[in-house]
């Protein structure tokens, strides 16, 4: 038996075994659970009941809609901001690069406990953000108590947390774009904006896709921000799929239903990732 044939399996074996035990098995178990319901404390087979209930559940559709709005608004804003920052940081003349880089990355490593306490204090109606806004003549914004602003708060908090993270990814990729591409372009008379759209963006396409898919997964499973800042309110306006899964399982004790929602999320992440691939136009 030649080594070259068995070698890959040996090398992949630890990962595959761990994957089977700790990922595949729980996934199957919770998939089975999604066809069960609790009757007098015991789980019994319920067919498609959880899924039909899901189909008729207003909260689920609201959560879906909210998640979609947050996704459509937040991901592009964050990606554009991250690209702008990465571009600025990529400038050779810039000093203190390392300092800026670390500072921008910091929000991604913050501990959730601090994050939730600080943001909920800052976003109060008389909190520091509204105080700062009043200096530039903007009247107090009801950040957490108005359906529209509550969504905005979630988007702002997410953007704060993940922009630097994506920036680091873009920065790495930017440093790999050959300098002569830009030189040739500026000889042809292309200004900075044109250079950005005709050279930088196409060169960054695979990275944007990569960051986009990670953000898609993150947004569809979104839980931390609504859980800590708004609790899904006011009136479900910031209810997300991640939060609804948690509530169904841990607050309403219905893990069968929670699993069904989870699988709906999986299907959607899958679809959205395929769409992103198609838009990006490559494999």
């Amino acid at each position: 038996m030649n080594k070259a044939k068995t070698f890959p399996y040996f090398f992949a074996a630890p990962a595959i075994l761990l994957f089977l035990a700790f990922t595949v098995y729980p996934i199957i178990a919770s998939f089975v659970l999604s066809f069960q319901e609790r009757v007098a404390g015991e789980y019994v087979f319920a067919g498609l009941k959880n899924y039909t209930r899901l189909w008729n559940d207003d909260i689920f559709w609201t959560a879906m809609q909210n998640t979609f709005i947050i996704f459509v608004v937040q991901v592009p804003i964050m990606i554009i901001l991250a690209m702008v920052l990465a571009n600025v940081l990529n400038n050779q003349l810039l000093k203190l690069k390392g300092f800026f880089r670390v500072s921008f990355f910091l929000p991604a490593v913050t501990s959730l406990v601090a994050y939730s306490i600080l943001f909920s204090i800052m976003l109060q109606e008389e909190g520091i953000i509204n105080t700062a806004l009043s200096y530039i003549g903007i009247t107090a914004i009801p950040w957490l108590s108005d359906p529209f602003w509550a969504k905005a708060s979630i988007i702002i908090a997410m953007t704060w947390r993940w922009t630097g993270y994506n920036m680091v990814i873009f920065l790495a990729a930017l440093q790999n774009i050959p300098e002569d591409l830009y030189e040739a372009a500026s000889l042809d008379g292309a200004n900075k904006f044109k250079q950005f759209f005709y050279i930088t963006v196409p060169q960054l396409k695979p990275v944007i896709l990569f960051a986009g898919i990670l953000s898609t997964i993150g947004t569809l499973q979104l839980f931390d921000e609504p859980f800590n800042l708004t609790g899904g309110g006011p009136a479900d306006s910031t209810m997300t799929l991640g939060l609804y899964i948690y509530q169904s399982g841990f607050e309403y004790f219905d893990f069968g239903y929670a699993s069904a929602i989870a699988y709906a999320v999986v299907v959607m992440v899958g679809i959205l990732s395929i769409i992103q691939f198609k838009i990006a136009g490559d494999e």
Partner: peptide
């Protein structure tokens, strides 16, 4: 006075 969450209420 609208106080969102425990911390704001105590405050």
């Amino acid at each position: 006075k609208e106080t969102v969450g425990w911390d704001a209420w105590i405050s």
